[in-house]
Amino acid sequence: MSEFIMPSLGADMESAVLMEWKIKEGDKVKKGDIIAEVETSKGVIEIEIFEDGIVEKLLVEPETECKVGTPLAIIHSVSERINISPAAKKRAKELGVDLEKLASQTKGTINLSQVEATDEKTETKAPTTDGMRQAIARAMSKSNTEIPHYYLSTSINMTAALKWLEELNSQRPIGERILPAALLIHAIVLALKKVPQLNGFWQNDTQEIISEINPGIAIALRKGGLITPAILNTQEMNLNETMHSLDDLITRTRTGKLKGGEMTQQTITITNLGDLGIESVFGVIYPPQVAIVGIGNIMDVPWAENDMLCARKVVKVTLAGDHRATDGRIGAQFLDKLDKILQKPEELL
């Protein structure tokens, strides 16, 4: 591993502007290759590399002024031979650990403990690997950089809905009871049918409204990590089916038995942090989706109604929308519909 630094291209040179990289990360380079163009007071000069290796990381963005000696890139020297101990080799084969990948992250000798540590990462934390964290990181960074979010929030009185649900559940055997989470998801799906602009994608500068409503449900894996598999085609489901599908999805998510489509066909995301006692959730949209609905904890709060102050069960529902695809008005319509739907729970069945 070595740093490629801004070379001195003349005794009087103090700094130069890196104009353009001629290489990208992962490229193999040979001694003498031109890897960048820099602009000095004497004009644009091509600079070359002095060793063989692989470009590990570019440290400086183009058009940045850098002092002589500033590290510009990290080069993984190919002459640094990686030794793999026999035991490590054998164990890697048994565990299916990718030694080439490990070698690219290691200096010196790869031994047994490194192989086993790699395996622990891939095995016990299965879907919650660093890989998952990185995938989330990438998607969320992209989202926050590219998507102009707007946020709307409303408090919805759940008293009637929960009372109705309690009544319903009291007549059902325990295995057929409906959870408030399922009720809320179903209500959101019904609201999306009325305000379909929030269900879909923003791609290539155009909005795409999708007729299937496949809400990605944020499901926490207890040992860390979070994934948002979809319940597919909820637009065709009644409340019972939604509950059943949600149950099935959570079970399969936690046992690692998701289907491909469930991980790729989400059209909107619903995140419910209510179980953790969170009051309201301001989500980050998962691109190319255009909205994320956050559900907080259903709480007993003082509530003014008919000029009276009373205690009511209330949930805060938040919408984050992609301002390129929709305006706050659409979002407001959606939340309003949702509220109305939840006030007439008997129509939810």
Binding site: R177, L179, A181, A220, R222, L246, D247, I250, D275
Partner: peptide, 8 residues
């Protein structure tokens, strides 16, 4: 950290 689902 058992959610309402697990509890049910």
């Amino acid at each position: 950290e058992i959610d309402s689902f697990d509890f049910l």
